[in-house]
């Protein structure tokens, strides 16, 4: 079917993908090419009418990713300054999501190899957690504290200044 095209922007072929929970999505080939995984599948002739199955990406994040890729593929080359600004605004609004969706996007974009989106989600996550305490972070990431209180105290002492947060935290260290 869809042979590897060097000029992805001109291809009108629609690529179908299927989420882990069985929902079907369609996007232009140029958009699908922004995902490394999808591009390889297309190049290997694995894109057919049944759609490419994405076993670990659920419908909710996949819908967002299709949106992202479609928007970015339409504006991939020769951007004017205004278009670049608009794309930046799109990104900023796009990533204003709750933490559950953010982590879904983090993992899904990484899995699908959508570089721009990965960076966007990683930066957003970093912005969210940078002012937080270690304890708040454990909660966010679902991590269990495997230090003894003594060990934790010890690490705190090495760089005490780093544990002084200006915002009122629930627990410092």
């Amino acid at each position: 079917m869809a042979a590897a095209t060097d000029d992805a922007g001109d291809s009108n072929e629609m690529i179908r993908v299927v989420s882990s929970d069985g929902e079907h999505f369609e996007m232009p080939e140029a958009a699908a090419n922004l995902s490394l995984v999808l591009r390889h599948m297309i190049e290997d002739d694995c894109a057919d009418a049944a759609g490419i199955p994405l076993a670990v990406v659920a419908a909710k994040p996949l819908a967002k990713i299709v949106d992202y890729c479609t928007k970015h593929a339409a504006k991939s080359s020769g951007l004017t300054i205004e278009e670049a600004e608009e794309l930046k605004r799109f990104d900023a609004e796009f990533i204003e999501v709750d933490t559950d969706m953010l982590y879904d996007l983090l993992v899904a974009a990484d899995f699908m190899g959508v570089e721009g989106l990965s960076k966007l989600a990683v930066q957003r996550t970093a912005d969210l957690i940078k002012g937080k305490t270690p304890e708040q972070n454990r909660e966010t990431f679902g991590i269990v504290n495997d230090f003894t209180p003594e060990e934790e105290e010890e690490i705190c002492k090495e760089n005490e200044w780093a544990f002084q947060i200006t915002k009122p935290p629930s627990r410092l260290c």
Binding site: I129, K130, G131, K132, T133, P134, N137, R138, F141, I143, V144, N145, D146, F147, E152, I155, C156, E158, N159, W161, A162, F163, I165, C173
Partner: peptide
């Protein structure tokens, strides 16, 4: 860097 140093206590 400040956050990185602090997050050394998150987990091993």
């Amino acid at each position: 860097v400040k956050s990185i140093l602090r997050f050394r206590t998150v987990c091993k």
